[in-house]
């Protein structure tokens, strides 16, 4: 730590960390200003407009170059997401099957459900510690 006190960069970093909140607050207040908010809203509209125009122009250009556009990448992403959905659904189904199998085994071996089976759920009988009750 003594070494850090002699390190001007460490001292500067420490100062930055300590004063960051005040600087951030000043910037946030500036961004909350009506003029800034209006400007940001307008910028967003313009950005959306130019994004649409640029996307349309680029998609044809990229298609000619046999390269994927953003929309093509999103299609792949969506497809992957759908595959993940299917995998999740299979996991749900497998869990159900496992629970049903455990219940059937429990009945077959005349166990009281939830008593001795390895897949038994813990009893829902917990009480709060005395000092909390």
């Amino acid at each position: 730590m003594e070494k850090d006190k002699l390190n001007p960069m460490a001292v500067w970093r420490e100062w930055f960390v300590e004063s960051e909140k005040a600087w951030s607050q000043a910037l946030t207040e500036m961004m909350g200003d009506e003029k800034f908010s209006k400007g940001m809203g307008r910028y967003m509209q313009e950005a959306l407009h130019s994004h649409r125009m640029f996307s349309e122009a680029m998609s044809q250009y990229l298609a000619n170059l046999n390269l994927p556009s953003r929309s093509d990448v999103l299609d792949v992403s969506d497809r992957l997401g759908q595959i993940e959905d299917t995998l999740a659904a299979i996991q749900v189904e497998l869990r159900q099957q496992r629970i049903q199998l455990a219940q059937a085994n429990s009945i077959a071996s005349h166990e009281t459900p939830g008593e001795t089976s390895a897949s038994a759920k813990p009893a829902r009988t917990r009480r709060p510690p005395q000092h909390q009750a």
Partner: peptide, 14 residues
């Protein structure tokens, strides 16, 4: 939530 409120209340934010 002052900042978000200021941003969305301007007519420019659609």
């Amino acid at each position: 939530m002052a900042l978000y409120k200021a941003w969305v209340e301007t007519k420019a934010f659609d």
